[in-house]
């Protein structure tokens, strides 16, 4: 329809007949509008993705040219205890982070949904998410400081004894995981909240007339109807969670020992501190595959739950 009006100019320019016009549509205009984004996409997404795969097959120290070494990097990776450690630590982080975050966010979302419509409260809840990871990490680094941190002051005062949150191998990963729960729980809660608003009000009214308690309604109405939304939220948050870097980089730098050397941080170190770019690229290929696998597995779950809401 739009095409019917414009052709006069286009036809004059290219001498196109109307059949050709129909086939190519607004292609010329589209190319102009698309140009900047396509340029950015090609140079900073498509090309580096391809180059990343190539780099993983090379040995490259940032100086000179990349030297093709075939699958040597991947062979090295299988025998690298630090790689397996980083994978283990990352998975541990993701499990704690996502486990706690999902439960807390769900509770928060349901509480807000059943108690209040206040946008101010929802805004407050979102606040930690707006602040940079680095800021969040530093604030908690201070609050959890062994000597002067307010949390340890309170623990001491209660009589539980101080905990070296960032300094002990057992506590470091759970601590970082919980700090990031604090940053993300409000955002996740708002995503779930949006899902809750899609559940029609009459479902609650009907079950209230049947004499269901709030507790009962949560388990028999809210949760089943929310399942597809929860699956979607999980996909997003799990993939995001694997990318933990900032918090580790400003607080523990991978330590104590290797307790917090998560996979992102390990790749970062390999590439930018040891200039082992080829090997770093090989590990990011593996990370790519893992995340792809996680996404596909979770999409299956999502599809399985889709029937509930329709």
């Amino acid at each position: 329809m739009a095409t019917q009006v414009v052709p006069k100019r286009a036809a004059k320019a290219s001498g196109a007949v109307s059949g050709r016009r129909r086939r190519f549509g607004d292609l010329r205009v589209a190319l102009v509008f698309l140009f900047p984004a396509a340029l950015g996409f090609t140079v900073f997404y498509l090309w580096p993705t391809l180059r990343g795969f190539y780099l993983s097959l090379t040995e490259f120290s940032l100086l000179g040219d990349a030297e093709f070494v075939g699958l040597a990097n991947f062979e090295r990776l299988i025998g690298d205890p630090l790689f397996w450690n980083s994978l283990r630590v990352t998975v541990l982080y993701v499990v704690i982070n996502i486990g706690v975050q999902t439960v807390v966010a769900l509770a928060l979302a349901v509480l807000m949904h059943r108690l209040t419509t206040s946008v101010t409260i929802r805004g407050l809840v979102l606040l930690p998410y707006l602040v940079a990871n680095v800021v969040v990490a530093l604030v908690w680094f201070w609050m959890l400081d062994y000597q002067l941190g307010v949390v340890n002051q309170i623990l001491d005062w209660i009589g539980l004894g101080r905990i070296s949150f960032f300094g002990s191998e057992t506590w470091a990963i759970p601590t970082i995981a919980l700090v990031n729960v604090w940053r993300h729980m409000g955002y996740t809660a708002l995503l779930i909240f949006a899902g809750l608003q899609m559940i029609p009000k009459y479902v609650y009214e009907a079950s209230a007339i049947d004499g269901a308690s709030e507790w009962r309604m949560f388990w028999s109405v809210t949760l089943p109807l929310l399942r597809p939304i929860m699956a979607l939220v999980l996909i997003l948050s799990v993939i995001g969670s694997f990318q933990i870097f900032d918090t580790v980089a400003v607080t523990t730098s991978g330590g104590p020992v290797d307790a917090t050397r998560v996979i992102y941080f390990y790749i970062f170190e390999l590439a930018f501190e040891r200039f082992d770019f080829g090997y770093a690229a090989a590990i990011s290929v593996v990370l790519f595959l893992i995340l792809g696998g996680v996404a596909i597995a979770q999409l299956r779950m999502l599809r399985a739950g889709e029937s509930d809401l329709s």
Binding site: G25, L27, A30, F33, F41, Q243, I267, S284, L287
Partner: peptide, 28 residues
């Protein structure tokens, strides 16, 4: 706008969402 291959190009753009940022960070 209507142009041939539009939806394919759009899909290609979207696939970039699947690439973990660190993967493109090294070559970039």
């Amino acid at each position: 706008l209507r142009w041939p291959g539009r939806d394919k190009v759009f899909f290609l753009f979207l696939t970039a969402l699947m690439v973990p940022p660190i993967f493109t960070t090294l070559p970039n």
